[in-house]
Computed example of a mutant assay.
Amino acid sequence: MKLNRLEKVLSGMKENNIHQMLVTDKISIFYLTGKMISPGERLIALYLNTNGDHKFFLNELFPVTEDLGVEKVWFNDTQNAIEIVSNYIDKNATIGIDKNWPARFLLSLMDACPNCKYVNSSFIIDSLRMCKDDEEKDLMRKASQINDMAMVKLQQALLEDLTEKEMASKLATIYEELGADGFSFSPIIGYGPNGADPHAHPSDAKVKVGDCIILDMGCIKDNYCSDMTRTVFYKEAPQKAKEVFEIVLEANKRAIALVKPGMRFCDIDNAARDYITEKGYGKYFTHRTGHSIGLETHDMGDVSAINTDVLKPGMIFSVEPGIYLPGEFGVRIEDLVLVTEDGHEILNKHTKELNIIK
């Protein structure tokens, strides 16, 4: 167990009067134990109790041989895992449950322990994960460095006359060659009008002269995620698209310039949104300005108009304003930003200035 993280979780439990908790999300289990297990439909659970009586419930299908600093309780596919878990639970106390635990497990536990009070306790670990320690910061820098290198190679591939789908496949190969562990999310590659859909899926479309192209991509390296968007032009940049590009770029820069401890997430969103609105494109900026990122592409926390949480050192999130004109084109420019003790650090080093691929 990572004792410094465990101690913070136990402290958070006590503050919220949650004396026992089942951690069942594989990412949060990894955060606390350093062991990544993908259980599929099977149950895994880390039971934490403020009295120190912790257990790790594991299916024999996942042979964890190393000492994780917590007692392991084993079961197999023919046994009732919930019944085994329930034997260790204080059946007359509040118990914290992960926000995404499948109903088939939760409902069974509620039947087995009807006198427990069930509460969502994910926020305790999720809030800790928002602020990265030094090791995590370095891992995030490393993932973003790979993403920077991949962006260079992907933009070069635009000259190979590939479809959006073929570009996505090309990116998978590029990541493998650069030592990444795979995609952190399915890439968004949008030529021309396809880029006007903020979550476009790669299609069979081929690039045309004058196309404004969105390249939104990220990889995983050592369990940590990267994410970056660059908008480029093919052969030439039409005047209207160029003007929209410069508006989005300025919005990105204005928002990032405000990032420092003590600012609020909504302040960052307002900086980008107000500028785009001032330029007449407010209704075409259809999403929040960003999201937190780390072990997952979308960690807890976002850069939105309604999030009044204060920025703290160690937080990492995206700043990705965009303008999307249906039937014409879209522009999005995204960087990952780390909050430092007295300001910020931009993790992406690849240029975001206007770039015409020739």
Rank of each mutant, 00 (worst) to 15 (best):
M1L: 13
M1S: 11
K2A: 12
N4W: 07
N4R: 08
V9P: 02
S11N: 09
E15P: 02
N16V: 03
H19P: 10
K26N: 15
G40H: 10
Y47E: 12
L48Q: 08
T50F: 09
F57K: 11
L58R: 03
N59P: 04
P63S: 02
V64R: 14
G69E: 05
V70G: 11
K72W: 00
F75C: 12
N76S: 07
Q79K: 08
I82A: 15
E83N: 12
I84G: 02
S86H: 05
S86Y: 09
S86C: 11
I89Q: 13
K91E: 15
W101D: 08
L107E: 07
S108L: 04
L109E: 11
L109F: 11
D111H: 00
Y118N: 10
I125G: 01
D126V: 03
M130W: 05
C131H: 06
C131A: 13
D133K: 01
D133F: 01
D134P: 01
D134M: 08
D134W: 00
E136K: 03
E136V: 01
M140V: 04
K142V: 05
K142S: 12
A143W: 08
N147R: 11
A150D: 06
M151K: 04
L154E: 04
Q156F: 12
Q156W: 13
L158S: 11
L159W: 02
E160A: 12
E164H: 06
E166C: 07
A168V: 06
S169G: 11
A172E: 15
E176G: 15
L178K: 08
L178D: 07
G179Q: 09
A180V: 02
A180W: 00
F183K: 12
F183A: 10
S186H: 08
S186F: 10
I188P: 00
G190V: 00
Y191P: 07
P193C: 08
N194C: 07
N194R: 06
G195S: 07
H201Q: 09
A205S: 13
V207C: 13
K208W: 00
K208N: 13
G210A: 01
C212P: 13
C212V: 15
I214T: 15
I214M: 15
M217H: 06
D222L: 03
D227M: 00
D227I: 01
D227L: 07
R230S: 15
R230C: 14
V232C: 15
V232S: 15
K235P: 05
E236C: 02
A237H: 05
P238M: 03
P238L: 02
A241V: 12
A241R: 05
E243C: 00
V244I: 14
V244S: 01
F245N: 07
I247L: 03
K253M: 15
R254I: 04
A255P: 01
R264I: 02
F265A: 13
A271S: 14
A271V: 05
A272L: 04
R273W: 10
I276K: 00
K279Q: 13
Y284D: 07
Y284W: 05
F285W: 03
G290N: 06
S292Q: 06
S292W: 03
G294E: 00
T297W: 00
H298N: 02
M300Y: 10
M300E: 04
G314L: 07
V319L: 10
Y324T: 03
G327C: 04
R332T: 02
D335Q: 13
L338V: 03
G343W: 00
G343K: 01
L347E: 10
T351C: 14
K358H: 14
